[in-house]
Each structure stands twice: as structure tokens, then as C-alpha cells.
Write a protein that binds this DNA or RNA. Structure first.
Length: 305
DNA sequence: CCCGATTCCTGTAGGC
DNA sequence: TGCCTACAGGAATCGG
């Protein structure tokens, strides 16, 4: 039995990929929807790029959160005034805290929220319990945060305009057809091809290796030399890996949100990622590693053709 | 256009 | 033990 696992970098460091962002969106929806952002505090001006602080405040502060969702690895939070767009990068965390004071290093932005119904909360004792502070922490600062005013066409936004389909929002057949057609004549390695957000979103370095292992396709194969039948298997493998990780990542995320973020992410059951030299779980041969486009790539030489 | 390499950043691991 | 280097990742950008 082959079971995909939540993503870490092999040392237990939590890496937000599509499944983790999806779980984050679900958790925030559960906890925050209908609540109101009362403040956005910036502890620095830029992450990967400058954050438009006024635009972000204008989009969020003073109106109920009416929608929280995910597109690709972006988390979106919408009020009637606008939409904030957040990317956790590689090391980003969005932690729910009781207080407005940073408790971890590399806390860059703090969203203060008055949760739904908080006006009726008592003033004493747990009077502040319904207020919650979302701490955006990101040591490596690969994250991004921006916002757009209401009415903006998000599909035309620079961060979204070139994105391919959501792998879990289309059928395996549709995804396979799309990948196969887009790959005709392409010499790029199939691993780089499926990691390209213009082709399909949400497949990062870890899940690319894992999907190709499940599909039995070597990562270095030219995308244009993968057959339609193989793209059928690959599309289903991508969906299987991501869907299973959403389940597993969800569990991981609850620990993550309510503790320090690393709990539960050490016990990994990845098939090839980070398992160089260890035995393949299918054929007991050695898992091999190569570097491609400066990224570690893992595969089984016997199981993948 | 296509494709591979490089860049951003910091914490951690491993070599000596 | 401490210093140094390599490496991790998404996505933009550069150059051939």
C-alpha cells in the first residue's frame, strides 16, 4: 500500500504546498468567516517584495470576512472592500494566537480579528477570548502578501493570469488531455513540466517526484515523449497524491495550528522523496537521486520507465 | 518561444 | 567546540 504523506523537507520542516494551503483555507473558513479584521500590523515592509500596506488594510479592515479560499498555493481572504492574497512561500506559517504580540522570530504581519459574535462577549474574564490574532511568520521570506480592491478581476492579476488548472477541480481525463496536448513537442523534463504552474498548479518539488513514482514515469523523460496513456496515469497519480496529502496534511495542520507547527510532520511515508539509497517500497531496489534544474529529484530506476 | 541556470532568504546539517 | 559551506523551496528573471 502506497500512502502519500504531508510535505516536509526531510528534516521535519513544514513546507506549505497545495494540500497544506487547502487545509489552512478550510480551518480559517471554519474559524474566521463572518468575523471582522480590526487591524493589520506590519513588522516589516517587504517579504519577497514590498507589501502594499495601505491597499491590504483597505481591503480587509472594517468589514466581515465573507470568503476564504485557495487558488494554487495562494490563500485569499475577501471582504466587501477587497481581497488579500497571501503566499506562504517555503517557510511561511499563519498561526492563530491569542495575543497581538509576536511570540516567534520572523513574525512579519499580524492580523487582528474580532470573531463573529464577539460584540456579545462579556467584558471580563474571557472577554477577549473571541479576539484572535493571525501571525504571519516566514523565516526565509519567500512568502508574498498583497491585496486588490473589490471588483478586481483576479484572473487577470499578475500572480494568477498564467496559472494552469487546479488539479483537483478537473477530472483525471481532462487533466490528462490538457497535459498531453500542452506537452506536444516539448523537450523539457516531465518533472519540470508538471511543476510549471502554467501547466498545472500545486505540484511542488516533493509531490512531483511522488506523482511520477506512482505513475511509473522517469522524471527526466522529455514531456513530449510521454504518451497519452501515461498522462492518464500521471494525472490520476497527481490527484491521488494531492488528495491523500490533504487528508494527512489536515491532521498535520491541526497540530500545526494549535501547537508549534512541526508536530506530526516527522513521521513521513514518502515513497521516494528524500529516500536516496533506501529501498523502493514497490520493488525493494535502491531509490536514486539526481539533480535537475538545481532541484533534487528522486526516483526508482526499476519501477519508473 | 523554449529551456536551463540563477536569484531571493535563513536555519540547519555535516565536514573538518 | 566552532567555523564554513551546501542545501532546502516557488517563482521571477536572465541569457543562450
Amino acid at each position: 500500500m502506497i500512502t502519500p504523506a504531508p510535505a516536509t523537507d526531510g528534516r521535519g520542516f513544514f513546507m506549505p504546498e497545495l494540500p497544506e494551503v487547502e487545509c489552512l483555507a478550510r480551518a480559517l473558513r471554519e474559524e474566521m468567516l463572518g468575523g471582522q479584521v480590526t487591524s493589520v500590523t506590519f513588522l516589516r515592509k517587504d517579504l519577497r517584495e514590498a507589501m502594499p500596506m495601505d491597499v491590504i488594510r483597505a481591503a480587509l479592515v472594517g468589514a466581515p470576512l465573507r470568503r476564504v479560499w485557495r487558488r494554487s498555493k495562494y490563500l485569499l481572504m475577501e471582504t466587501e472592500y477587497g481581497t488579500a492574497i497571501l503566499h506562504l512561500g517555503m517557510s511561511g506559517q499563519l498561526l492563530s494566537m491569542d495575543g497581538p504580540t509576536p511570540v516567534k522570530t520572523h513574525t512579519h504581519v499580524i492580523f487582528g480579528l474580532k470573531r463573529k459574535g464577539s460584540s456579545a462577549a462579556p467584558q471580563n474574564d474571557d472577554g477577549g477570548a473571541r479576539n484572535v490574532y493571525l501571525h504571519f511568520i516566514d523565516p526565509r521570506r519567500f512568502g508574498r502578501l498583497t491585496a486588490v480592491p473589490a471588483g478586481t478581476d483576479l484572473s487577470a492579476h499578475p500572480w494568477f493570469k498564467d496559472l494552469g488548472p487546479e488539479p483537483l477541480d478537473v477530472t483525471g481525463e481532462a487533466l490528462a488531455n490538457h497535459l498531453w496536448q500542452a506537452s506536444r513537442g516539448r523537450s523539457v523534463a516531465v518533472k519540470a513540466f508538471i511543476m510549471n504552474g502554467a501547466m498545472v498548479v500545486g505540484v511542488g518539488n516533493i509531490y512531483a517526484s511522488e506523482s511520477l513514482f506512482l505513475a511509473g514515469i522517469r522524471p527526466a523523460r522529455a514531456a513530449g515523449r510521454v504518451t497519452r496513456v501515461e498522462y492518464g496515469v500521471l494525472a490520476e497519480s497527481i490527484q491521488k497524491v494531492l488528495a491523500a496529502a490533504i487528508g494527512a496534511g489536515g491532521t498535520s495542520f491541526r497540530d500545526y495550528l494549535h501547537s508549534d507547527g512541526s508536530e506530526g510532520s516527522y513521521a513521513l511515508q514518502l515513497n521516494v522523496y528524500g529516500r536516496t539509497g533506501q529501498v523502493c517500497r514497490k520493488c525493494l531496489g535502491p531509490v536514486r537521486e539526481m539533480r535537475h534544474s538545481n532541484r533534487a529529484t528522486f526516483f526508482c530506476g526499476a519501477c519508473q520507465k
